[in-house]
Design a protein around this nucleic acid. Structure first.
Length: 221
DNA sequence: GACCAGGCACATC
DNA sequence: GATGTGCATGGT
């Protein structure tokens, strides 16, 4: 892997995009539900679904546990894959009840690596969702890798295109000061800049959207 | 009307 | 182990 100064890049991004209000959520539970609902889905659609859950008064541990799956599916319909996601939310709540007596505070007291492994056992929770839950809902130190993280890192030649999730996560964690706030905002910055890149993988020839990192192509070979 | 979006599980080879 | 497919709505 090439040597990259990610702190320098972070500050360049921060200077350009300013602090991102990333992953707004009133409660840890709302963040967790959002993490499931946003799987391969635009955040705008997730916002609608969350609003409907709130309006129905079921965005609570008890509410989500007691609502019938069919009704839950109907409420989260705007976020897409609603039948699958209703099952996933139900699976998480069953897990929370079984392992932590339905208590999120108790769950997040768990050791990061132990909890990560346990979350990955829950049907519907893959590595990105697990890391989002850990970092954004629980304040645990784990870097979240997503489509944008991948797009930025590959487009700049920092990592090979066939890199897997874990290796990409390690790439960032090995190069960033271990700080939850930094992990949080760094990811947000990568999404901000990644949004301006060409969607194709690899980027098409003569692409008008050449990779850049403000202010002046930092990191571009 | 394509194409895309803050993935994941499962089938098949 | 790699590759393919279903899941589904809403914005551009």
């Amino acid at each position: 892997m090439p040597s990259v100064d990610l702190h320098e890049i972070y500050h360049a991004l921060l200077n350009h995009f300013r602090h991102r209000n990333w992953w707004p959520g009133d409660t840890p539970l709302e963040v967790i539900v959002g993490a499931i609902l946003t799987q391969n889905t635009a955040w705008k659609n997730v916002e609608k679904a969350i609003r409907r859950l709130k309006e129905a008064g079921v965005l609570s541990i008890k509410g989500l546990r007691t609502i019938p799956r069919e009704q839950l599916a109907e409420l989260i319909r705007p976020s897409g894959y609603y039948n699958q996601k209703a099952l996933k939310i139900k699976a998480f709540l069953a897990f929370l009840q079984r392992e932590y007596r339905g208590n999120l505070t108790r769950m997040f007291r768990e050791d990061t690596r132990v909890l990560r492994e346990k979350l990955l056992q829950v049907k519907g929770i893959g590595p990105e969702t697990a890391d989002s839950i850990l970092l954004y809902a629980g304040g645990h130190l784990t870097f979240v890798v997503d489509l944008y993280t991948y797009r930025v890192a590959t487009r700049h030649g920092w990592v090979p295109e066939d890199i897997d999730y874990e290796s990409l996560r390690e790439f960032f964690q090995d190069r960033i000061r271990p700080d939850v706030e930094l992990y949080n905002d760094f990811h947000a910055q990568l999404v901000a800049v990644g949004n301006q890149y060409c969607r194709k993988t690899p980027c098409c020839e003569e692409c008008p959207l050449k990779p850049f990192l403000p202010p002046e192509n930092i990191g571009w070979p």
